[in-house]
Design a protein around this nucleic acid. Structure first.
Lengths: 219, 219
DNA sequence: CGGACTTTGTGAACAAGTGAACAAGGTCGG
DNA sequence: CCGACCTTGTTCACTTGTTCACAAAGTCCG
């Protein structure tokens, strides 16, 4: 399921090249996955490929968009207008893709009332009213780690059902809500792990005499 | 393996509370995972828990840091100083966690030479020299999708072995390099999918007579 | 109109990751 | 020093996801 957005983006790209039909193999190549996986994923939506030809690009776009619920806009509220929150508010990519920033919220009263990227910053306490008035269903947490759980609770209480958490903290929500997280430092630490490993194996090739526990070196 | 950074963060938090020893069960609870998983993950690093007591926090911190290669700083270069790149450069979180921003690079010559967040912006062509001089091993791609693959190739050619890609595009690198991606729009689209589904099931409960294909409704 | 060719959709083997359960090993009070 | 108690490390069954392989279905050219 998490691959559908990738297919969607890929299909938009091939559509720009005026390709009207595409095979699972070609789509797989462009999306960077296995062809069988593509077919299985798409067959789950229903079967509207034609054998011997492939999938009609326009039709696929419609079906995937519908499955993902992208036939309408989903307004979002950004909580926490610090460095990261400000950046996200400024970043135009959300609105373009159907997720307009509908409100900015912060707990710091000195920020409340100021304008940022065309939006007035509201206080956290106004969350319920904002969510209700503007039909917001998605909340983005861009606060420090310490406040993340608290904010998540308030978002859910205000009626938000989907949360994207950028704060480096473990956050739990009731089972009625969906939470996903993006942890930038975590991504870098994983890269560091691989970088470290490559460095290690490189130095081993240079000095094979150095004794290192093989299991550690391997994986 | 991708869970080690979470354990690390959690351990730092409990250390601040002057906890010197922790059981797998407690750590699992704080990190939001299963206790057996914690034990299995940690046993892979070697076995330095003591049965009947738990794990020594300080020792674990050292071991996990070493495993992740966090005993040194890993300078990063950010390619693309647009909205997102600028935001990431400004965001202090990287430097704090051992990933100092060592250089900013852009293809737009009108930006080159200007200062941003204490860093002078260099031209993309200077990448090889910057990477070599400043010991950079990690590159962050914050360009538009169209340039992402090209930038990735140049990063690898310049000697970078780990890449974090924020551009909404599929990027391939040689097997000597590691690539991870963060796609903000993708995360929101996944949330949209769940939001859509919740809406659907809610309306079904209200009007059970409405006919909807059951397979679509279920998952 | 018929046969060669292409591509889907799916069944079945395979691999990876998860979680429950338990024995081995260690602590601690008496 | 001993037995009750606790927690790790590991085994095993199970679920989930991936990939292969192939029959069914459709196109297209002669």
């Amino acid at each position: 399921m998490a691959r559908l957005p990738i297919y969607l983006r890929t299909l938009f790209e091939v559509k720009a090249d005026e390709v009207s039909t595409i095979s699972s193999e070609r789509l797989a190549e462009l999306a960077g996955v296995n062809a069988a996986k593509v077919r299985k994923d798409l067959s789950y939506l229903g079967s509207f490929g034609t054998r011997g030809v492939g999938y009609e690009v326009d039709h696929l776009l419609v079906e995937i968009s519908r499955e993902l619920g992208l036939t309408r806009d989903w307004p979002v509220v950004i909580v926490g207008v610090g460095n990261l929150g400000a950046a996200l508010a400024n970043y135009g990519g959300f609105g373009q893709r159907g997720f307009p920033v509908a409100a900015l919220v912060d707990a710091d009263r000195s920020k409340v009332g100021t304008l940022f990227g065309g939006h007035k910053i509201h206080h956290l306490d106004d969350l319920p009213a904002l969510v209700a008035d503007r039909g917001i269903t998605i909340g983005i947490i861009a606060t420090p780690a310490a406040g993340a759980q608290e904010v998540a609770d308030q978002l859910v209480a205000a009626g938000v059902t989907s949360i994207l958490n950028f704060a480096p903290a473990v956050v739990n929500v009731s089972e009625h809500a969906t939470l996903r997280k993006v942890d930038l430092a975590l991504e870098l630490q994983v890269l560091s792990f691989y970088g470290q490993r490559d460095l290690l194996s490189a130095s081993l090739r240079e000095e094979p005499g150095v004794s290192v526990d093989s299991e550690t070196a391997v994986s």
